[in-house]
Design a protein around this nucleic acid. Structure first.
Length: 116
DNA sequence: ATTCTGACAGCAA
DNA sequence: TTTGCTGCCAGAA
């Protein structure tokens, strides 16, 4: 293989995209939960970094369903519009106040549990 | 090649 | 209790 030097299918980014796309409608998860599911544990920062690159791919990544462990919309500033992420969440029936997901614990979707 | 940053989270003081 | 630093891994300068 001489050409495929970069972008393996098992790329950490691709895994993050897959998990993110598995988040059901009206649910949210956290960066740490995804990182832990991938086996990286504390590499939650990489999850956010991966989602930062979700703008460059053709697949629709529901990155608005990924928030930090507090339920805070830490990435709202990266959706082109500072209110887009909040609007998308509200559009799915998720209440957002003060840039924070209301009833985050109830809306929380853990890949470790849901996916096994 | 080295250094810094980054959509976080855990632990120490 | 809150505040702040460190750890994580990869990409950009």
């Amino acid at each position: 293989m001489v050409s495929g030097k970069k972008k393996p299918e098992n790329d950490f980014f691709a895994l993050v995209y897959e998990v993110t796309k598995l988040i059901p409608y009206g649910r949210v998860t956290s960066y740490g939960a995804i990182a832990r599911y991938l086996g990286s544990g504390r590499s939650a920062r990489m999850v956010g970094w991966a989602l930062n690159a979700c703008h460059g791919i053709n697949d629709p990544i529901p990155a608005h369903r990924v928030v930090n462990r507090e339920g805070l919309l830490s990435g709202k500033h990266h959706f082109g519009s500072p209110t887009l992420m909040e609007q998308l969440l509200i559009n799915e029936g998720i209440d957002v106040e003060e840039n924070k997901v209301v009833n985050f614990k109830e809306k929380f979707w853990d890949p470790l549990i849901e996916l096994g």
